[in-house]
Write a protein that binds this DNA or RNA. Structure first.
Length: 210
DNA sequence: CGTTGGATTGGCT
DNA sequence: GCCAATCCAACGC
């Protein structure tokens, strides 16, 4: 499995919808405090843009989403449902408030450690969901704001980007607004994607009712 | 300050 | 398919 060079800051300094499909096939590396190295290959992501009602950044900066408004290439980690963390890559220029949610990945290195973190051994379920991925890689609150372009705790390497024909596109999972945007990108045919069901686009806003 | 519900998961009916 | 778990951000008063 090729890791390749680290992705540079400029890679992230573009719109989330541009960066998202290009993140597929890239390698997310996590270095633990004891020196152990975990690596996964991204197979499913979702873009969240500034004018996007489903985005945490939609109503402006708050203590939770502040990192989304910072420089591109940082990790935005938030806590949800009282028990799970989700990890995002901040994109676009500073101040924009856009990011790409990391939803699923194929384990590459450190599978035993990931299995320990997850409390199960099924490789297909180690990183197949945003909460599962953060648990497998031990990404929690302390990594909120971590610099992927310069840091050592967590970063992204070039890997092998997917051919466009291998990139599939659907609506996003678990959102109740912004369901008209097909901003979930995944590797076609990968068994490592999450089981989450894409949201169904509602009635077209502005159309006549009854 | 009180209320609501969430970019989820896993277990049970 | 349904729902509880379990915290806390966001928002309204």
């Amino acid at each position: 499995m090729r890791l390749g060079p680290r992705l540079p800051r400029r890679f992230f300094a573009r719109p989330a919808t541009t960066v998202a499909p290009e993140l597929l096939g890239r390698v997310l590396v996590r270095r633990l405090a004891d020196g152990a190295r975990l690596a996964v290959r991204l197979v499913e992501v979702e873009a969240y843009e500034p004018d996007d009602p489903a985005s945490h950044a939609f109503r402006g900066p708050t203590p939770r989403n502040l990192v989304m408004f910072g420089p591109p290439g940082r990790l935005y980690v938030y806590f949800t449902y009282g028990m799970h963390f989700c990890a995002n890559v901040v994109t676009s220029a500073q101040g924009q408030g856009s990011a790409v949610l990391l939803r699923a990945a194929e384990p590459v290195q450190g599978l035993d450690e990931m299995a320990r973190h997850r409390g199960l051994n099924d490789v297909l379920r180690l990183c197949s969901g945003p909460g599962r991925l953060t648990q497998a890689l031990a990404m929690e609150r302390s990594l909120d704001g971590a610099d992927l372009a310069r840091g050592t705790e967590v970063f992204l390497t070039a890997g092998e980007p997917l051919e466009p024909s291998r990139v599939m596109r659907t609506t996003r999972v678990g959102v109740r607004v912004g369901t008209d945007r097909r901003w979930r990108f995944l590797e076609r045919g990968s068994p490592f994607v999450s089981p989450g069901r894409p949201s169904v686009p509602g009635p077209i806003t502005g159309s006549r009712r009854s």
